[in-house]
């Protein structure tokens, strides 16, 4: 799915199992927390959780604004 979108638009793949994303061929990858809650962490307070989510989304936006020539995992 990610590759078909990439043919038309810049796309960042936010996922937990980065190796699968790499094998399948996403270009901009942002690692996330866990499979059942990629952008959350139920063990934290709602406020902390939202701050965590915001950090990951901001990283995704940064990835979209970064020129790349090859598959890149954005870890910060």
């Amino acid at each position: 799915m990610v590759k078909e979108i990439e043919r038309k638009l810049p796309v960042v793949h936010m996922c937990t199992i980065v190796p699968i994303s790499q094998t399948v061929g996403a270009n901009r990858i942002v690692p996330t927390i866990a499979i059942p809650h990629p952008l959350g962490d139920p063990s934290r307070t709602p406020e902390e959780e939202k701050a965590l989510r915001r950090g990951l989304v901001e990283r995704a936006l940064k990835a979209l604004q970064t020129e790349i020539t090859e598959q890149t995992v954005f870890t910060e």
């Binding site: 990610v2 638009l9 796309v11 960042v12 793949h13 499979i35 989304v57």
Partner: peptide, 26 residues
Amino acid sequence: NAKKFGAEIANRLVADGVTAVILTST
């Protein structure tokens, strides 16, 4: 199927003037 969905979604997004996409997976 995933390919088909991706292509169709991309077409609709382009038609709607979207600039970029965040795709999340579980």
